Amino acid sequence: MAAGERPSCSSLTTKELQQNLKLAKQNERPVRLLFEIPSSRVVDQLLNKYVVRQSVETYNRWNFSNCVHVLPLQAYQIVVMRSGSFDSCRVSIERRYSDFRKLHNKLLEEFEEELEDVLLPPKLLTGNFSPENILERRLALQDYLAKLFATRCVRHSAHFSEFFTEHEQKQAHVLLRAGQFKAALGELQTVLEIQEKLLPWQKSTLTVPALSAIAVCYRDLDEPEQAFSAAQRALPPVRRYGLKPYRAALLELLVDLGYQLGRPVAQLQDELTAIRNGERGEVCFRSLKEVVIHKFI
C-alpha cells in the first residue's frame, strides 16, 4: 500500500472496523427537536358581558347586550428547530394558553398513564402579567413541549403535530378559497417546514395536503415551474401509500403543467388514463383544487 494511502474496508481487520465504527458514532451529534418560546404578547379578546358569569337578575337589570368585556390574554411565540445538525430555518408560530390546554386534554384522553408525570403549567390569573411571571410561564411551557416530544406515543400522535400546524393550515385554506394565493402560500410554507421538522420519518404522508395546496396556489398565480415542483414532490408518497383522493388530481395537474412547460409527460398521462379506466363509474374525479378545498370544508 502506498504511503499516506487510506486502507480500504476489505483490508481492515474486524477490530479496526469496530474501532472506526466507534469513532464515527462518537463524532455523530444526535438530532432532536428543540422548542423555544422567546417572547409573548398580550392580546385583547372581546367578550359579550353575558359570557362572563352574571346572574339572570343582574343581566335583566342592566342592558349589557351592546357592551363588551376586554379580556387580556397571552399569545406565545413558539420557535421550532432541530439540533444536532445545521438548521438555518427557525420556524415560528403563535399559540395561546387555551391552545395548550386543548392539546393537553386531547392527549390525556389517549395517553393518560404515559402523561402521568407531564403536567401542563397552570394558567396565569387575569392581570397577573408581570415580566417575572411571564418569563416563568414561557420557560415552563417550553419545558412542557420538550417533555411531550420526549414521550414516544405523543411524538407520533396526530394531536401533537396538529397543535403546530392546524391553525395555519385552516387559515391558508380560508385565504385560498378567497383567492388570496400569496398570503395562503406564506401559511402553507410554515406548515410544510414544521411538518418536516416534527416527524421526518412520517413526513411523506403528512406533507401531501400542504404540498398539494402549494401546487394549487402556484398554479393560480401562474407560476407553473413552482406548481409542477410541489406536485411532483407530493406524487411519490401518494402512490406509495395509496392516497386515492390525491393521485388522479395530482397526475392531471402534472400532465397539464408538463405540456405547458415542455416536460415529458407520456408516462404520467398513461398512469392517469389507467386510473380513470380502472375506476370508471366508481370515483368522482375532482381537480386538485377541489380536493384541497374539500379537505378543510
Rank of each mutant, 00 (worst) to 15 (best):
M1D: 02
A2V: 07
G4F: 00
E5Y: 10
C9E: 04
L12K: 12
T14D: 15
L21H: 11
R29H: 13
P30A: 06
V31P: 09
D44F: 07
D44T: 14
L47D: 12
N48P: 05
N48I: 02
Y50K: 13
R53V: 09
V68S: 03
L71A: 08
Q74V: 08
M81T: 11
D87E: 12
V91C: 12
L107D: 10
L108I: 05
F111T: 03
E114M: 04
E116L: 14
L141M: 08
K147D: 11
A150L: 10
A150G: 14
C153M: 14
S157D: 09
H159P: 07
T165I: 03
E166T: 00
V174I: 12
G179H: 06
Q180H: 04
Q180D: 02
Q195A: 01
L199C: 10
L199M: 06
L199T: 12
Q202R: 14
T207S: 13
S212I: 04
D222L: 11
A227I: 11
R233I: 00
A234T: 08
V238S: 00
L250V: 06
L251C: 02
G258P: 00
P264C: 12
L268Y: 11
L268V: 11
D270R: 06
R276V: 04
E279P: 02
G281Q: 05
F285A: 05
V292T: 09
K295R: 15
F296G: 03
I297T: 15
